[in-house]
Design a protein around this nucleic acid. Sequence first.
DNA 1: CTAGGTGCAAAAGGTTTGCGGTTAA
DNA 2: TTAACCGCAAACCTTTTGCACCTAG
Lengths: 147, 147
Amino acid sequence: MSSSTTADALNQRLADSGMRATPQREMVYEILLERRDHPTADELFARVKAKLTTISLATVYNCLDALVQCGLVRQVNYEREPSRYCCNLREHAHFFDTESGRIIDVDLPPEYVDRLRQVLPPGFVVHGIELGFRGIAPATLSASSAQ
Amino acid sequence: MSSSTTADALNQRLADSGMRATPQREMVYEILLERRDHPTADELFARVKAKLTTISLATVYNCLDALVQCGLVRQVNYEREPSRYCCNLREHAHFFDTESGRIIDVDLPPEYVDRLRQVLPPGFVVHGIELGFRGIAPATLSASSAQ
DNA sequence: CTAGGTGCAAAAGGTTTGCGGTTAA
DNA sequence: TTAACCGCAAACCTTTTGCACCTAG
């Protein structure tokens, strides 16, 4: 049920971008949805391999590229660390907790985003905004998403 | 004169962080100030090598690390591209022009920065904020800094 | 039948490190 | 004299690519 609807949605999204659904892509996406904790490709590889034992790391990278390209996944970069992957499609910023290494999603209200771009002089065409905080999160916040 | 005062400032900053001034560090910093165009380490290496012919790429990386650590230089990362280096110490965002590859500094008024952090729920300790825009800059803007 | 995907291994590419020699406090 | 720093080369690590094989449309 829920799993089949996400599979359908994935199928649709991939098709819209001229790509096919495959067991590997479905599994990578499913595992990414399972815990929304911004894993690296390597970490994801380990989790996926437990269920699809023959998958390779290169395929995980390829699947993630496909998911990013079709707009279902966001690639999150912090400094020069390995990329992390995020299946939260809402407009949000990232808080990088330097103590735990955790990434926390912070929802951004639409009017906040509008105000963000107002800092640009006129004439700039904006295709994307990236807002990141670095610091220490309240210890009590154990989930991977705030607000 | 101006060059000697920046050298003094560099010396001071390095000393404050327990490091020495060296010809290589001075030259890397000077070249970085010359054109404020966010070069990569490689690019900087080429420019510095023209004046300090024996310098090595590893030393450029080490010098940049030193300059970043003592707070005179900011390391700017965009997606997974090579790091770029920025000697603008004012609070500012970066606009990544996807057509030219250029990075444009956008000054952030203090009250804007204050408003940025207001999106965080209470309890978060912020040590740094990174705001980046991706898009197309007005062609007329040829300088590397806006506002 | 053919375009697109997978898995493997090797390559790429930016950055870091180890080491012997040098320099400045 | 001794701790910091340089230059060189090798190592590192994440990501990409080439290639042979497979599979769905």
